[in-house]
Design a protein around this nucleic acid. Sequence first.
DNA 1: CGGAGTGCTGTTAGCGCTAACACTACCTCG
DNA 2: CGAGGTAGTGTTAGCGCTAACAGCACTCCG
Lengths: 347, 347
Amino acid sequence: MVDRAKPGEQARTSAPGPRQPSLADVAGMAGVSHMTVSRVVNESGPVRPETRERVLAAVQKLGYRPNTAARTLVTGRSGTLGVVALESNLYGPASTLYGIENAAREAGYGVAICSVTRPGRTSIGDAVESLRRQAVEGIVVIAPHVTAGRALAAVPGDIPVVAVGGGKSAPVPVISVDQYDGARRATEHLLALGHRTVWHVAGPEDWLEARDRERGWRETLERRGLRVPAVVRGDWSPRSGYEAGRALVGKRGLKAVFSANDQMALGVLRAFTEAGIRVPEDVHVAGFDDVPEAAYFNPPLTTVRQDFIEVGRKTFGLLEDRMAGGDVRARHLVPAELIVRESTGPR
Amino acid sequence: MVDRAKPGEQARTSAPGPRQPSLADVAGMAGVSHMTVSRVVNESGPVRPETRERVLAAVQKLGYRPNTAARTLVTGRSGTLGVVALESNLYGPASTLYGIENAAREAGYGVAICSVTRPGRTSIGDAVESLRRQAVEGIVVIAPHVTAGRALAAVPGDIPVVAVGGGKSAPVPVISVDQYDGARRATEHLLALGHRTVWHVAGPEDWLEARDRERGWRETLERRGLRVPAVVRGDWSPRSGYEAGRALVGKRGLKAVFSANDQMALGVLRAFTEAGIRVPEDVHVAGFDDVPEAAYFNPPLTTVRQDFIEVGRKTFGLLEDRMAGGDVRARHLVPAELIVRESTGPR
DNA sequence: CGGAGTGCTGTTAGCGCTAACACTACCTCG
DNA sequence: CGAGGTAGTGTTAGCGCTAACAGCACTCCG
């Protein structure tokens, strides 16, 4: 029933359909060879204007669409990039993904994504493998975890790979926002307000960004010979920020808090409100990320902004270099910007 | 060892590399025909265990990886789905994307995405076209805009397409969360608190979800013969919610507000706080979406939760049906759930 | 003992496309 | 005026894979 038997047995019930037109079909209709059609379609090689017209008309009429699989098979190029993304609604990773997709599309590449839940050595390896099966020409790994570095080392070297947010020890080129410097700025801003020290609500220990932000905070304090309070650790979620906030309530000399992201800062604000601690009157709070909501927190949150569009663009550029055969290995940093709002306001 | 050129011709600087091994290479090493290797790799057809071992060993040794382009060319199946996504960090669309990607991957499909900024007829058409070039077998359109329905009508009918969040007039099957009922629940919840009426901060007029939520709110009031206040319209952003909140301040009898999403509700809360209006003491506020932050707003926000994982699963299921040739046309609704928190709390 | 399976393997053709080269007409220039 | 272009077109040979069928050896059963 499904088969392509004798003529007159049309009307295949559903699946295969009447087959897409091929170069040969167009060639037949235009009265030229398939090669001429190929030249018209790809604008490679000379074709007489008159012939081109005829071919174009046939293409139009038949609704011809080049078959990527065939082209890929013969050229070895698929025009597709792969992105290994973290399955999460975290603002950073999601924004990065869009930034990359954007840059790739502008350059005429398609994008295949493969998301991983728990980024360990195997799952990143699996994701890369699955993308390679889709014949991608290069791969971007959004790998904010400490373990990702090791995972990347296990990735075969015969395909261009770049990472976003990976550690400097990663065996591939890395783009990331300058987390360290962002944290330094936030901390110095808080200290400039006259505080003796700054408490820190850190992100999960296995995230590089959490480590960098923590280091930026810690070393800023140390550089000035200030006391470094014990960090309270969360998992990026507002809930964990809330718990961290409760743990901070009542600490002696609690005057300034730097949270490793905005969502946790929100939880901290909530916990403080419940405990009757006023922000900014009693305590100053700063976050990191500048999520769109941050300006409307209660109170509006001072935070550190990351330019993800720029990250996406740089990442794609780097991947393009690699695909062209360049042997880039550098770590590229995108600067972060401090946004001051009421949560560290005067008074 | 890796190279198949004459000795001394090593070290191709970069691009082409020493060519991936093919079926024929594996066959040569295992001393069988390429067809036998194919059978082993695809587990199609009988192969003697001993032979299979030999083949598998060769596959391993050579690092053989099937060439998808070739397979796609001959079978006409690429194992890839396309998703037309909205380029935005809005919680809903982003979550939907992950839900779909999840379901697809579990079923062994790859996912190619193509995001559109401003969804009009052409950009959705372009996106679909660009995905088709990547030889996808089916397409999911995340199309929350009113115009998307018309855009979908222009999409060629020879490839399975389903939509998420499209209108009921869409020419393709549609999955969506029951926005109308969610809005009804939120409104009734507010009314049950004893209020005379409920104000509404609506989403952008060209979003279907905004329309459905508004309709759910409006008809609930009308059904009870209550006064329907003029809506204040925002664009989903916290900023627009803030402005809406300022516009609401001072309205006579302002006791209950239903915001079409959580981000705008945040802005409303902020505006009220600035104006000295207390929530929930003076006014009750409810939102829609249940973003992870909502539970830690100040105060925690009553809202309507949508199950995006379920939406993703159902969407993929529907697309699978279509790809199998089914002629589904129904509109599938996923129920929404009311989550009550302090912003509509007692007192 | 012959015919009909059935398990295993190989051969062949072709998916739709591009690279490489071949061919024809015409044109240029020493 | 013939050598050597160049513009325009066609021919051929694969890219790596699977479908379809063609063996061959062996078993089973009447």
